[in-house]
């Protein structure tokens, strides 16, 4: 079985002057066509690194091992020509922070049109223009906005442009990396609704990355929770959110109550301590120092990611114990 996206034992380490930063450590993930996978985790847990590696966009300082297959072909070893063909036409990315992801001196229409022309050299000006208009209207912007420069758009509008751009070549896979951070809450909800609507309508497979477990619970089929570069829990969206197995996932779902649940909004959600520095990870389970349920055994061995319920895995030796 090939599947749309298969990530196996992926590790990414940044080489820096201050030492190696293991940002992703042995991750396995799978997304099938039309499926939406959510990835949750604190800042610095390696979500963006993971997403950029799928299109081999990691900076040259990164050392990568493992395999990433999109539609069966290995992204990490394919030739440049193949890779360029895969980029955007096979899989596209909505980047974190649309503020800076658009070129400030080019009109947004031109930027949306660019992948269309690159991936279909025979496209005529007319077809490209009408496709750009169609895409803009799909994301709720008038076609005339194609003539605008990024600075003339609001944050929400820019994010819509990014989404339109990501859908331009009708990719089978869209990676959305926190598409709504830096937007205010109202606009966040609109953009998310737009994105999930489009994904279902077009039958696109998606990886949706967010800090916010409740957003993922609403939009995804399955959720993977990352901590310090590892997947610590993975399972059906509702189950991960409402009946999490790993103590970290539990803390996350408490930290971000479901949207529109006023009672839970101010629930004490604090998780003690800071996210760990990936350069100096503790031995054993990397969550142990912050975990209220940790026992000595947790600090000795890295707990494997095991299926604890059907289709629901967690990397914690304390699951099921009192």
């Amino acid at each position: 079985m090939t599947g749309l996206l298969r990530i196996e034992d992926l590790s990414v380490t940044y080489r820096t002057e201050e030492g190696d930063v293991p940002a992703v450590r042995g991750v396995d993930l799978a997304v099938d066509a039309g499926e939406v996978l959510g990835i949750a985790g604190e800042s610095g847990s390696g979500k963006s690194t993971l997403a950029s590696t799928v299109l081999r966009l990691q900076p040259s300082s990164a050392r990568v091992s493992g395999s990433v297959r999109v539609d069966g072909s290995d992204v990490l070893t394919m030739r440049w020509g193949e890779l360029r063909a895969l980029r955007w036409a096979g899989a596209s990315i909505v980047f974190q922070g649309a503020q800076h992801s658009l070129n400030p001196v080019r009109r947004v229409g031109t930027q949306i049109a660019e992948p269309l022309r690159v991936h279909d050299p025979r496209a005529t000006d007319d077809t490209v223009t009408s496709r750009v208009g169609e895409l803009l209207e799909q994301v709720g912007l008038p076609a005339a906005r194609a003539a605008a420069y990024p600075h003339q758009l609001s944050g929400g509008q820019r994010q819509r442009v990014m989404i339109a751009m990501a859908l331009a070549c009708r990719p089978a896979l869209v990676l959305a990396d926190e598409p709504t951070t830096a937007l205010d809450v109202m606009v966040q909800a609109q953009v998310l609704a737009l994105l999930s609507g489009l994904v279902r309508e077009l039958g696109v497979g998606m990886v949706l990355i967010s800090h916010d477990l409740s957003v993922l619970a609403d939009m995804c089929d399955r959720i993977a929770v990352m901590y310090a570069g590892r997947v610590v829990e993975q399972g059906p969206a509702a189950e991960v959110f409402e009946a999490s197995l790993h103590p970290y996932a539990g803390a996350l779902s408490a930290a971000f109550p479901r949207v529109g649940d006023p009672a839970a909004r101010f629930a004490p959600a604090g998780l003690p301590g800071d996210p760990p520095d990936p350069r100096y990870l503790p031995s054993g389970c990397s969550f142990a120092p912050r975990c209220s349920r940790a026992v000595d055994a947790c600090r000795e061995q890295v707990p494997p990611l095991e299926e604890k319920r059907p289709g629901h895995a967690a990397a914690c030796i304390r699951v099921g114990e009192p």
Binding site: G140, P142, A144, A147, L153, G156, Q190, L194
Partner: peptide
């Protein structure tokens, strides 16, 4: 598509043709 254009505060203004 699904979303009403006017919901986004910026979109209403956007309907004016660019100068």
């Amino acid at each position: 598509m699904s979303l009403p254009a006017a919901a986004d505060p910026g979109v209403g203004a956007a309907l004016e043709p660019p100068a």
